[in-house]
Nucleic acid binder design. Structure first.
Lengths: 250, 250
DNA sequence: CGGACCCTTGACGACTTTCAACGTGTGTGG
DNA sequence: CCACACACGTTGAAAGTCGTCAAGGGTCCG
């Protein structure tokens, strides 16, 4: 065990030269904390698209953060159907929901080639004992995950399909803009219609139709997984004001 | 600030005589940890039904655990509508989702008379610095919240209304049985149809109709908020096997 | 006893799902 | 280099479920 940690120390790369550093908002907010933690983060590991970084039922030994690339988490429900629980963008902590029971509750699958940082649970303890404030950071990261999940519930509560999808797209825009720091107008969807449908609890046909409706309305340009936002204000307005409500008011 | 903490120490009651102790699984798992923490938990406070223990937008200074009584958390969305995000049973940690941004994202409202434990964030720090393992407990509590929320997303993914409601009821049964330690057959709903509908993303009429359907099927006895489970196995079977699927197979 | 609130029930309409067929893009093999 | 297969995405038509509107019944409290 100690040898393993030692080995990881040998192989480590400092987080200070990690592209994640300015991005890693939810996972580790304070760059100073990052330095502390860097002693115990395993080296980043490249992951192929479609590969699994952890699987439902496995024992939890580490948490994960993507440095580059988007992942999805999905559970296999009783009926054998898969349910996409979330998408995880660079800098977002993964696996926390598993520590309570000690086993992963879902598969984490790379949607595109990824660079993954693995953080052994033992490293968290070490980091926390060295720097008590680190616990606060960790707690904030946990709170952030929880807040994300709650936001998703809020999305699902949007009754109409167009509201749900629009809210999701706005979220994507904002996440991308937080990273790049500038206003974005194009969106690349890392996930297919199938994953999107499962995530938003809509049939893939409904996803497709809703994209078409947004296209016909002149709000989006849709080319498979590449989107361009033509009318940002109307996209925002779609959230909370569904088509049916609009037509009812007219 | 220090005075305030000091005062809380004077008023404190030991968690060791807390009815929550054997119950407090998600919040603080190890009774020994409870002792540690007890030095810094504010005295329990009785809360009237309908009262608010924290409100959306307020600055977070403490986390909360109910000792007795169920609460709901709800957000006011842009449209002025409220969305129930969760129900919180005794022993479940509340407020964690707020620590990331520093402000509560929802109102926490008592559905019945409650006894609430308030845990100042500063107390968490103190407890963690005294006992490093406490961080693990806290992390598990956070993971537990996250897992609960994910389970709820899984519920919302159940397409049919009867599946969602049945899954919710099964969850209630299991929670009650975890606390009492014996098999329960009656359920008391702390929440009205309105909150239930918002939580499950269904109209209250649909909730009502679904209850009636379960009653007509001989699965439940429904008397307002008091339920009795007549046919547990068929209630379980309703989860994952909706009426329409059953009739389709027939 | 009246009123307010909560819950139930019915009818209708709208939205989404389902089933089915049809493009389109990509990759493999000839 | 082309042909084919396969996965992915789109579109159409029909059916079903749930939401909305409306009315009625039950319970608690003043």
């Amino acid at each position: 065990m100690a040898t393993r940690l030692f080995q990881s120390l040998l192989e480590q790369r400092a987080c200070s030269d990690c592209v994640l550093k300015p991005v890693c908002k939810p996972a580790i907010i304070d760059p100073e904390q990052l330095e502390r933690l860097s002693d115990h983060v395993l080296p980043r590991r490249p992951i192929a698209a479609g590969a699994c970084i952890y699987a439902q039922g496995q024992t939890v030994r580490s948490l994960f953060v993507s440095q580059a690339g988007v992942l999805k988490t999905e559970t296999l429900s009783a009926g054998g159907q898969t349910q996409v629980l979330g998408f995880h963008f660079p800098g977002e902590l993964m696996g926390l929901e598993a520590v309570a029971r000690g086993r992963f509750r879902a598969n984490a699958v790379a949607l595109e080639p990824c660079l993954i940082c693995e953080i052994p649970l033992s490293a968290l303890d070490v980091a926390a004992s060295r720097r008590p404030e680190f616990q606060q950071q960790l707690l904030k990261a946990a709170g952030s995950c929880l807040a994300d999940q709650q936001e998703h519930v809020g999305r699902l509560a949007m009754r109409q399909a167009d509201e749900r999808l629009a809210l999701f797209l706005v979220g994507l825009l904002q996440r991308a803009e937080r990273i790049s720091g500038r206003e974005e107008e194009s969106i690349h969807l890392a996930m297919g219609r199938s994953d999107l449908g499962s995530y938003l609890c809509l049939a893939i046909e409904t996803i497709s139709r809703t994209f078409s409706a947004l296209r016909d309305a002149g709000i989006l340009v849709v080319q498979r997984r590449h989107l361009r936002v033509l009318d940002r204000s109307r996209l925002m307005k779609t959230v909370g004001v569904s088509q049916s409500e609009e037509s009812r008011r007219a």
